[in-house]
Computed example of a mutant assay.
Amino acid sequence: MSFHYLARGIIRSEGHILLVRAIGDTMTFLPGGHIEFAEPAASALARELWEEASIEATVGRFVGAAENEWFDHGVTQSEINLIFEVNTSLTHSQPITSNESHLEFFWVRCEDIEQWNLYPEALRALVKQERLPQQAFWGSGVSGENTVSC
């Protein structure tokens, strides 16, 4: 079993959201990445955005968390994603160049999120909301459960 502790950001521009995927994969995710031991989650998110795509960002309010599990070569993988609002100067008309050859960044319309295979799956309902909830979000895709609460 492998556990992943991640910080992810919601970066929006005029009804669009920034997504990431491994090149050749069908699954997408919000920008961000692994939190290092004893690293504050917001700092990890700012660091990951800079490392992966030279995105200068101000990490804002904590939005909530989403857990997920999957199997990779027969090994159970489990993750908890801490989700934050992120402010940048980016617009959806700007292409984002990845600093990592295995990743690609792209903008999609929030209303079309179901077509982009976003994981954890519980984040799809959150992304479609015009305004993010003030109360902390919790979504789960563990053991077949797909629950969302705000």
Rank of each mutant, 00 (worst) to 15 (best):
C150T: 02
W50M: 15
H4Y: 13
V148W: 04
D72V: 11
W107D: 05
A41E: 09
V75K: 12
G141N: 10
V142N: 04
T26C: 14
N117H: 07
T58R: 15
S78F: 08
L19R: 01
Q115W: 08
N68A: 09
E79P: 03
V75G: 03
L18Q: 04
P40I: 11
E121W: 01
A65I: 01
E85K: 07
A44E: 04
G33T: 06
V142D: 01
E111K: 08
H4T: 11
F106K: 06
H92M: 06
F105H: 06
W107I: 02
E51W: 13
I96V: 15
L126E: 00
P133E: 07
N68Y: 05
L82N: 01
Q77C: 07
F29A: 03
K128A: 09
L103F: 14
A136P: 03
P133A: 12
S89G: 08
N87C: 13
W116N: 09
S89Y: 05
F71L: 09
P133K: 09
A7Q: 05
A42M: 14
V86P: 00
G141C: 15
A66E: 01
G60K: 01
R124C: 01
L82Q: 02
E56Q: 15
E111N: 13
H102K: 13
N99G: 12
S101A: 14
T97H: 09
T97Y: 05
L30K: 02
G64Q: 02
S78M: 15
E14I: 09
I35V: 10
D112M: 07
Q115G: 08
V86T: 06
L103K: 12
C150N: 10
G60W: 00
T28H: 13
E14H: 13
I55Q: 02
F84M: 00
I113R: 03
P120L: 01
W50P: 08
L90Y: 03
D112L: 01
A7D: 06
M1L: 10
G15Y: 06
L6K: 04
L132D: 00
G15H: 02
A44T: 03
L126D: 00
E114P: 02
G60A: 04
S98Y: 07
F29K: 03
G33L: 01
R131K: 15
N117S: 04
R47W: 13
V142A: 07
V75E: 14
T97M: 11
V63K: 01
V108H: 00
L49I: 13
I10F: 11
G15C: 08
A125Y: 04
Q77H: 12
E79D: 10
P95L: 08
S143Y: 05
E36L: 14
A136Y: 07
G15E: 06
G141E: 08
A57N: 02
G74I: 06
W70L: 05
A44Y: 00
M27D: 14
F37A: 12
F29M: 11
M27T: 15
H4A: 11
Q134N: 14
T88W: 03
C150V: 04
H92Y: 13
P31I: 07
